[in-house]
């Protein structure tokens, strides 16, 4: 017995057709061009990683994991039988310390700036101020470095002394000797100015996506602008801010020249941010590059590889956080 609505017999079901899309020549050419462009950037990235890895493979064979954990950078003296010891532990710690100092300073400024731009600024001025902030990102880092060294540092030393005087009881604001020049604090200050544009721009982007009906709901309940921001905008934007902060952190960790000019590199881990001793993998590479021997050069390549991987991971994480925010919208 068969009704018209019953499932057709297996033999009656036709095989699925192949759907073939015939593209025009112009479309194929354009497709080829953009595909090539896309692949070139990927290939370049891959080749850089490959180059660094091949040049530094011997270092990792020789020093193993110690290259990352060791606090000593000594090319040794083969004539007197002193073996070389290369380790970037102190530099890695220093990189994180300066970047975190920079982020701690930049984050409140950036979030405040983004809130101001999005919710307080008159609309006509908003565009021009946004442009000025984006322009800040275009200033070459050597300019920041020079300005930091000649203009900011004298002031920053005074602020550091004040901080030490009144908050010196906090371990990381203590100093082992009263030397305040070229400290992680000063490097962090410069870094914070350099990452404010990116953190501001991402925070602003997230704030502009807050659903209008939630904002109106808050206002209709008698909210002031600030209570509305606390109840609606910040909960919505929190993970976006986190993503922006991570991106800023990634940039701060890779920054080279500016930090090179205002930070005293020292191969011991130092958590006293006001004291004149710090580390930065990127700046160390620049510092040592000129006078490096064969082995040291390989060491610098290995340091570059480590920095490359760390910043890649941080950028990847931050992208993921930002994307997840904009997708769920909550």
């Amino acid at each position: 017995m068969s009704t018209p609505t019953s499932v057709p017999l297996q033999s009656e079901i036709p095989p699925a057709r192949a759907i073939i899309l015939t593209r025009r020549l112009s479309d194929r050419v354009f497709r080829g061009v953009v595909t090539a462009g896309g692949f070139v950037s990927l290939i370049v990235l891959g080749l850089i990683a490959l180059f660094l890895a091949s040049r530094s493979i011997d270092i990792f064979k020789t020093f193993g994991f110690g290259f990352i954990t060791e606090f000593k950078w000594d090319s040794g003296d083969p004539d007197n039988g002193i073996p070389p010891v290369l380790g970037i532990g102190a530099m890695l710690i220093g990189t994180i310390v300066t970047a975190v100092v920079g982020l701690v300073i930049a984050l409140p400024v950036s979030v405040g700036m983004a809130l101001f731009l999005e919710y307080y600024m008159p609309i006509r001025l908003k565009k021009s101020l946004t442009m000025v902030i984006d322009l800040m990102a275009a200033i070459p880092s050597v300019i920041f470095g020079l300005w930091g060294f000649f203009v900011l540092m004298p002031h920053a030393i005074y602020w550091a002394k004040l901080l030490h005087k009144y908050f010196g009881w906090i371990p990381f604001l203590d100093v082992q000797a009263p030397i305040f020049e070229r400290s992680p604090f000063i490097a962090g200050l410069i870094l914070s100015i350099m990452i404010i544009p990116i953190v501001t721009s991402i925070s602003r982007e997230v704030f502009s996506q807050v659903p209008l009906d939630r904002i109106q709901a808050a206002y209709a309940l008698g909210a002031t602008r600030w209570t509305m921001i606390k109840a609606v905008v910040l909960p919505f934007g929190s993970s976006g801010i986190a993503g922006g902060a991570m991106l800023g952190l990634g940039r701060a960790m890779g920054e080279t020249v500016a930090v090179y000019l205002v930070l005293n590199l020292y191969f011991q881990p130092n958590f006293q941010v006001l004291f004149s001793a710090g580390g930065s993998v990127a700046s160390m590479i620049v510092t040592k590059f000129g006078e490096a021997g064969q082995l040291e050069l390989q060491g610098l390549m290995a340091a570059g590889l480590v920095l490359f991987i760390v910043t890649l991971i941080i950028n990847f994480l931050s992208n993921m956080i930002v994307k997840r925010t904009s997708r769920t919208g909550n």
């Binding site: 659903p211 009906d213 939630r214 109106q216 709901a217 209709a220 309940l221 909960p235 919505f236 909550n330």
Partner: peptide
Amino acid sequence: GMVFQKPNPFPS
């Protein structure tokens, strides 16, 4: 007070 067209409780 006001109630809107689309329900808009605060999701957080």
